[in-house]
Amino acid sequence: MIVRTASKFKADFFIEKDGYEINGKSIIGVMTLAAEQGAELVLVMDGEDEQEALDALVGLFEDGFGEVV
């Protein structure tokens, strides 16, 4: 869901955790990040529509993706 949302925007999107950074538009990358749940994540956006993209992503995280956490 992260990937699908992020891919709608032009801005580059990276997720950072403990100095490990993955491309937020990569389904495989995001899967490997999920392996480390419970950690703090830093979302990095870079591009013309970065604010809209960030809002959309933060909204997703806040809704918990409809998952149980």
Binding site: V3, I22, N23, K25, S26, I27, I28, G29
Partner: peptide
């Protein structure tokens, strides 16, 4: 199929 289109990878 999505994985096959994962441009980053």
């Amino acid at each position: 199929i999505l994985m096959l289109k994962d441009e980053a990878v």
